[in-house]
Design a protein around this nucleic acid. Structure first.
Lengths: 188, 188, 188, 188
DNA sequence: CATGAATGAGCGTTCATTCAT
DNA sequence: GATGAATGAACGCTCATTCAT
């Protein structure tokens, strides 16, 4: 089958795109991404039909990686607070460990290049976390507020905490806990 | 060129930029913005030296308008909770009344075209709110968390509430209060 | 109204396109055409929205010029043979005097970039000649053959004669007459 | 590489090229031709060094096939008119039976990718017809016109007749004869 | 100052051809 | 020999900015 499409090259392109996007934004030329990945200009297009496709796949890739990191070791048993604290801690740890990926994800998340299909798939990767939170919601202080508002508040708190942890890495752990406590006061 | 002739034209361009950005994103051509403003292509550049300048000024403009709306009728006396509830209500009302402006502001906020100088100036417009919140912070449940984290959480909650109100306008008032209650539980 | 669109520039581009197409074919880069016309790359697109538009307008332009040359001094009175001989002579003279234009027209004529609308408009420019020929047809040796076949034969004879005249310019006049005689034997 | 292994593959590529060119023009990608032929992208280049080579060989192939069809059963004896009518009829029949091949040949014929060498070889395939016509020429009405003009006129008439037959297949036979009569009036 | 044509760098994508498998 | 991924030059077109009118 001749030279098979190389999974390595594919991920090299995705990784390069991530790095380049962080420094140059989503308008980074595909040529720059290709060069950063160490492949020829045209090769990028044998792995991704269009730039938009590349961006969408990168979005999903990062979203899935983030979800996997957050849900690492997660089992849907035990006390909700403890469970969620574990997830929260994983999540924050990933965010602090991969600031570039988080930045790229943020840029992609607000771009209108990302299709609703990609967004839905990204959502799905977070499903276990969402289920856990639904349990929290229905028993907690916000039980009378709509789920959508509840989720939005939770997400917002998470993003804010990540931002702050990144800003003051030295006390990241402390901020992680403080963020969680604040959140739990709100929703618990 | 500090004060070009027609202040009307200037604001027409800013308003046009806002409208166009909402539908086309930040990459909207200056030619389109100019046409939407009813002026010639080149005229835009006698009012704003570069497109980046235009975006920065629009950012500040919107930020200031938003701050003014939120702080309408604000006087730094009285009980913090009541004061802040008033501000919060104003703020949410503005957001719901001007979804396009909020959308444009959101796009601008994450763009790397916006300089830190603009961001600082935008910050400044919110100073009275910040001062009020600092009082809340030093006496409230998050008094041991850093101000930055505190502010980030508050902002995040506000954005989340706005989003949700926009999504379900019929019960906007209810969500406005629910968001505030949740926030206050966290920070009060 | 600022710099008005310059009719000169427009025709410079059309003329340049004609020249370039003759040497490089229809796939000649727009950049080359622009340079040949002495304008910037982008300027070409303020006069012609797309390359296809440029090609279509060039086609029409040449077709009209050719028709005008052939029909110069034509009045629909007098004996058909004499009339048509005059047209034929004009036509051949134009073809020999403007071999590049004829070559460009030939290339454009077989291209599928040229729309049926352009072809129809080109046809229209030849209408007076067509009418004259219809008279010839209905009274001549081919009166029982369909008009379409008649016209095709006439056109083919014209093209063949032009080709041969171009090949042997020294005796162009003689070939012009020989071609006409042959044609007339066929259709007269 | 003069005679690569599979003659089948070679003709599959040529046939595919013909089909693809008819629908997509001469700028059809080699990749598309290869796929249509059921071979890999690169395989095409083991049978034809360059795309230009492929086009030239296709041109010759078609030209030869056309000549063979026209000359089927031809023997250089008997009355010229009868002989040529036979050839003409064969020729027209082939054209009507293989409109795609004729279309491809037409596209190739006007392309500047086709070398003069290929054109000369194509010419050669028609030699017997040409010899017959030379006899007609030297005794016919055009005996005083140069051979080149004579041949051009004959070819033009043939093309025109083919075009018209293809347009109105129902009466193809009639048009075939009408075309011949017209031609013979001109040259006979 | 207003206008809009002029400019040319820059971009996403294509495709003939090469070459590793 | 067959395959199809790799290559990179090339192209049509866009658009921020300049400048003649």
């Amino acid at each position: 089958m001749a030279r098979p499409k190389s999974e390595d090259k594919r991920s090299a392109i995705l990784a390069a795109a991530m790095r380049v996007i962080v420094t140059q934004g989503l308008s980074a030329p595909t040529a720059v991404i290709a060069k950063e990945a160490g492949v020829a200009n045209g090769t990028l297009f044998t792995y991704f039909e269009t730039k938009t496709d590349l961006l969408n796949e990168l979005y999903l890739d990062l979203k899935r990686e983030m979800a996997a990191a957050a849900l690492k070791g997660f089992s849907p048993e035990g006390e909700s607070r403890k469970q969620y604290f574990q997830v929260w801690t994983n999540w924050m740890a990933w965010a602090v460990a991969h600031p570039k990926k988080r930045r790229a994800l943020a840029l992609l998340g607000v771009s209108d290049e990302i299709t609703s299909k990609s967004r839905a798939a990204g959502h799905k990767a977070m499903a276990p976390m969402r289920e856990l939170l639904e349990r929290v919601h229905s028993n907690g202080a916000m039980r009378d507020a709509p789920t959508g508002l509840f989720m939005a508040m939770m997400n917002a708190a998470a993003e804010a905490t990540m931002d702050y942890m990144a800003l003051d890495k030295a006390h990241a752990d402390k901020h992680c806990r403080a963020g969680f406590e604040a959140l739990w006061r709100m929703i618990g």
